[in-house]
Nucleic acid binder design. Structure first.
Lengths: 366, 366
DNA sequence: CTTTAGAATCTAAGCGCATAGACTATAAAC
DNA sequence: GTTTATAGTCTATGCGCTTAGATTCTAAAG
């Protein structure tokens, strides 16, 4: 049984297909009585307009696309959970054990950005098309997605810059969490500058800190950016230069690094961590080392994850407004109405200092 | 500048448009050398196939749809946060304060189901179209969504049953978290039966419980279902009939209800709660009442939220595999390839007993 | 060199809608 | 009664692709 089309509805209502179309798209051009006839016919035939045909005719789809990371299986909810990655078929009960999600990852960066993107799209009356690929067909699936939408937001870009350049000539593209570049796309990132500056200022102004050490996995671009900002601010405030510690999220490695610092009796006033997960790990290690936070040393993070609120002491951090980033992306794309940018553009989502206990304050907002 | 089409590519490559199409869709029908010519031309012209035109020609979109709740603004991440609901324009800093997310809601039901849906779609090479509505245009936006996809999953249905019936005649529809009904759709729910039975059996067999009381907001359909199962099992095991307590997630109300029970000296062996949030609240109240869990009374939940793991004592519960529910939905829809179901169907996602401390065990899985 | 099966390519039609521009009905103005 | 402006409706076309069926090319067999 074929789906009903405008032709069926038109015939049944005794009008032309144009009138059917107008009934939906420009109702005020159709006489009230006619409109009712058409809608009745449509209801009787279970008519649902084909978005494909509409999109083809209008040259616009009314959909914005978001391309997620490939490795979504590394999501903390799916991690190591056989139920997650074996597909649906091996449905036996014994598959259902597995690692429980890692609370230190909530709320997840990607998910929050995605949520903001969705909300803003709906607010604008656009639908959201999500895509990703779990096998190697990344390039193909991005192209496929691009063919379906009026604008595209990407979390990362693994292919050649030429391919992205070509894509960006055809539809508007937003690069999420990349602060700048020279392709004609919209680069969206967080306001790391003001966030990190506010941390340093707070440490100096309120807590009189002088020796500030930065800890992070330095080969992550975002981390490098934050380090540079801290360095500059520390210098501007007339403090001794900020030494970075290059570390990874591994208890043993962190332990050695920090034990070294302690042994040398060079404990700084504050350990500014590149993100909250690092900060929480650092606090774990300091606990093991018998060093009290914030009394012996201040610890701060960046991100604003849930676990930071419930840590002891509660983590002072820079809250990044992930949802805002997503909304910005959707809003920017919707505004273009399918027109690619001609020049590189960039914008930032806000970052805000949240003062809790790990700096020595008692949880007031600043 | 118009987007390139098959015609442009065909002309540039010196072939017909059919050959261009074959190059992408049936590459083995095209000679290697020709294929290369075509792909080169396509690259030079930044050609991206129009999914609209393809969908129109093939009568299939390759997209599955998920319609979320209307009130996504009630999401715990957005709750009360002005940054969330005022739209993007009022971008001043002072907007950024607001309630912090409620940890007791994680991981959120909807999000996990959605995630499963996405993963399974990608696994099947389908894109995912999400939609929702923040104003009153629910009906329209569902129809719009339906016109864009080969299959549709719905969290709930607020409109008339007739409208849903009509929808279900046109494309395959999955109703999430509704166990049965008589429309020709796929009803998907959790295996409450085996989950609740296992709880009761565990309480009886391992902890020798006899007096079991069920607590929940009884006018939620899901809660009613669970209560009935517990009642039946309790009866089957030869225990005294299971009394339900109708309660809401409000500390004061819960306090009064439980204080009453305590005053009457009728504390049961176990309080089986309809879900984890209720269980956590019950444990809060019991603490206030000076009643120890699990020594004085056993408490159990249903859901498997994160907060249950970190509660003291850790919550014994029935873990519902939300992601599985989402995967099931996507898988069922993909299988239909656009063909609506003719008869009502139903399926269940697994539910599994997770034994932790609140029943008196020490965290072993069962 | 001719025949012929099969591979490669092409021609032509149609998918369901939107909309410009043509046409008709209606009503107000003359 | 005629003219004219306007609202209402229709005809006709094109959006970019897929694919059945027609046509042409290729190469092995005779």
């Amino acid at each position: 049984m074929r789906r009903a089309t405008v032709y069926d509805v038109a015939e049944r209502a005794g009008v032309s297909i144009a009138t059917v179309s107008f009934t939906y798209r420009q109702p005020n051009r159709v006489r009230e009585s006619t409109r009712r006839k058409v809608l009745a016919a449509a209801r009787e035939l279970d008519y649902i307009p084909s978005a494909n045909a509409r999109g083809l005719a209008k040259g616009r789809t009314g959909v914005l696309g978001l391309y997620s990371f490939d490795l979504l299986l590394e999501h903390p909810l799916g991690q190591g959970n056989p139920a997650s990655d074996v597909g649906l078929k091996s449905d036996v009960d014994s598959d259902l054990d597995g690692a429980e999600p890692n609370i230190r990852a909530y709320p997840l960066y990607v998910d929050e950005v995605q949520r903001g993107f969705e909300l803003e799209c709906w607010h604008q009356g656009q639908a959201v098309l999500l895509s990703s690929s779990d096998d190697g067909k990344r390039g193909e699936s991005i192209t496929d997605l691009a063919g379906r939408v009026d604008g595209l937001a990407l979390f990362s870009w693994g292919e050649s810059p030429e391919a992205l350049k070509r894509l960006a000539k055809t539809i508007p593209v937003v690069m999420l969490s990349q602060s700048k570049g020279d392709l004609p796309v919209m680069y969206l990132s967080f306001d790391n500058e003001s966030g990190m500056n506010r941390i340093v200022d707070h440490l100096v102004d309120v807590h009189g800190a002088r020796r500030i050490v930065f800890i992070g996995t330095l080969d992550f671009p975002e981390v490098g950016v934050r380090l540079d900002i801290v360095k500059r601010r520390v210098h501007k405030r007339g403090l001794p230069a900020c030494r970075p510690i290059d570390a990874v999220l591994d208890h043993r490695v962190l332990y050695q690094a920090l034990a070294h610092v302690v042994r040398e009796d060079k404990l700084p006033d504050a350990l500014v961590c590149a993100n909250d997960q690092m900060a929480l790990s650092v606090m774990d290690v300091l606990l093991d080392l018998g060093i009290r936070v914030p009394r012996d040393v201040i610890v701060t993070g960046v991100d604003g994850i849930l676990a930071g609120r419930f840590a002891t002491p509660a983590l002072t951090t820079v809250q990044l407004y992930m949802e805002r980033l997503g909304r910005l992306a959707a809003d920017s794309l919707a505004e273009r109405d399918g027109q690619p940018w001609k020049e590189p553009r960039s914008a930032m989502a806000p970052a805000r200092l949240v003062v809790r206990e790990s700096c020595g304050c008692h949880g007031q907002a600043v």
